[in-house]
Design a protein around this nucleic acid. Sequence first.
DNA 1: GTCTATACCCCGATAGAC
DNA 2: GTCTATCGGGGTATAGAC
Lengths: 255, 255
Amino acid sequence: MKSTRSTTSTGSATSTGSTGGAVRGARERARSEITAAIKDEARRQLAAEGAAKLSLRAVARELGMVSSALYRYFPSRDELLTALIVDAYDAVGAAAERALAEAGTPARTAPVARWTAVCTAVRAWALAHPHEYALIYGSPVPGYVAPKATVEPASRVGLALITVARDAHRGPGVALPPLAAELRQEAERIARDVAPDLPPELVVALVAAWSQVFGLISFEVFGQFNRVVEDRDAFFTHSVSRLARESGLVLAPPR
Amino acid sequence: MKSTRSTTSTGSATSTGSTGGAVRGARERARSEITAAIKDEARRQLAAEGAAKLSLRAVARELGMVSSALYRYFPSRDELLTALIVDAYDAVGAAAERALAEAGTPARTAPVARWTAVCTAVRAWALAHPHEYALIYGSPVPGYVAPKATVEPASRVGLALITVARDAHRGPGVALPPLAAELRQEAERIARDVAPDLPPELVVALVAAWSQVFGLISFEVFGQFNRVVEDRDAFFTHSVSRLARESGLVLAPPR
DNA sequence: GTCTATACCCCGATAGAC
DNA sequence: GTCTATCGGGGTATAGAC
């Protein structure tokens, strides 16, 4: 239950002196360790009770602190929630970027394989951290409004997918299906915002594929595939690579 | 605020007599009216506070009742939640079925139009009832386990989509992309469970498309399209019909 | 079937001593 | 930066009178 171990002991051992210059490093280290411990415990509670019921008091109780002490680290419950959200977006974004880097360069690896690698990494992270996944891609937390600070971390997965598509379309252009006339203008606007260097047809297909991949993941994580799909690894890999090929995001690999 | 109007007055006016046979109808009517009022108020709170914080006390307070009185109608908070979930699945399922019926017979209407009609109806319901949508397709409510009674209502949308695909594949067979070898067995198992009369390739494509359509809807309802997609009607219609065609669920309409 | 009362929990946030 | 104490709420659920 207690997980304060090193954190509090370090803190009290090093911070008793007067405000000397050399102590500052240690003090800041203690502070960041406690901050990390708070977030860890909060994540544990996220799993048990859900974001809506995340409570500073319960976190403090479990850490052997008193609730008011937490306010020195997070000025409110919502700020703690924001920190968890940013961490989650960063974690899944980092997983996606790592998978892309490890998948190999466009010259060496077929685009569809790179696409699948990124999607698979996102799915693996989601399955390993279902409650953090729910926090960022599930139902919004009632009464909570995400501050601007979450926008940039939230875009990392999308940017990785854009990179795959951009690389895939460098060589001979893939024949992209034409846009419906009603979508022409909107497509150009979206493209301007998210990837001005790519053709609007591709960007629209990409945004759609992005949300569809998360549909596959969410249905699995949230239990809609219970009693329906059992071999989920095979199903996901198959679906996600077909999605990329059929929507023209990548070329079919040479056979 | 108060919405008890007819319900409580009806109840007290008719239920004062002894247990006569003729009174029973009225009493049951009063009971079902109060039950409906409770669910209505609970739905209102769902929107304000979210499922995790749904509380019998707050519902009772708003209805001018005392909390213990609610236990005559719902034995626990979770039973009330179950009722709301079943209602929500039934509502979205009915919307899908209605759209399918109104879209016209397979002979008259192109399969892709019927598919789009069902998906559009689901999306419209979701946008009109975002909190009920979140209840059934969003993050699971922590600590709540759905009872068996929710399974059948939950399947109605899927069955409507299966119907579209079945009708679409009655005539000349669409050339379905082949299954990955690793998926062969699983595909046959799924097909046996959900639509034994359809080829496994089709069923796999259908299950994937099903989850992908909900990915599109969830991203819109849950706010992931904020600052990305603006003309969402056009984007959805375009994406969902392309999805159906490209995955081979339906034949492209004759041009 | 509704009421009061009650047992026993929870929360966010702040004040002020140390 | 941590503590106690406190304000002012909130909740589930049950017992027992009417």
